[in-house]
Amino acid sequence: MNSVFAQTIRDKRGFLAGWGLGFLALAGLMVIFFPAMQTDGSLDALLKNMPAALQGLVGDLANLKEFGTYLAAQMFDVRVQLLGGVMVIILALGLTVSEEETGRLRTVLSLPVSRTSLFVQKWLAMLVVIGLTVAMLGIGVLAFQPFINEAIDLWVLARLLGMTWLLLGALGSVVYALGFATGKRSIAMPIGTFVVVGSFIVTTFSAGVDWLKDYEYLSVFHYYPAVEIAKNSAGGTDALVLVALALIPLVLGWLRFRVRDVR
């Protein structure tokens, strides 16, 4: 229990509890709203009257008729992307630049802990925190679905949760790598925010804006097609891209962190 990994998990208990309960509540609300979404025909009329560029915010109404695709389209594909993106930016900055700014990074590095070991252990701790938070979404769905007499296919839920963990792990890894590579909040935070918000805008609006379609592959969320995942048609290529998106900056960040000055 005296590893950097264990210390980091212990340190993030409050974060985990806060975001975990938030995700649980989000899942509960989304489940409870499903009957209204399924039966309310006024949504069709509303969507038809919306500008094409904004229709991407709502998605295909056909997806709202089935519980699994509804959750994929309305919870995983919209809210979790943004909320989760914000969460991992806060988490990754907290594990890297905040530790350096307060001087606690130097305290750990004054012990016989190598920079490589610290980098890896904190990253693993981040993945565990993200994994536990994402798991709360699943627990929320399973806990609240009996109230509306629905049951999501467990395999569908597992795939959605797994890809969400991969997506948030990849986004977190980008910010984490930048944080350790530079030690500068002024670099890590804007780039992390740009990746999350930029990806969200590109993916959301490309549904109705033709010229954006050509650049949609640049969005991280392009590799997280939640509805397709729910329909069991998402391939392993998306997962591989997310893994690569995590690993490439991680390796570069580690190489830089090993040799740079720590404040």
């Binding site: 590095l109 012990l111 040799v259």
Partner: peptide, 15 residues
Amino acid sequence: VRPSNAHKSHARIGY
């Protein structure tokens, strides 16, 4: 001593 290998000597250092 370099940043990448400092931990090796830290086993014998208190700070």
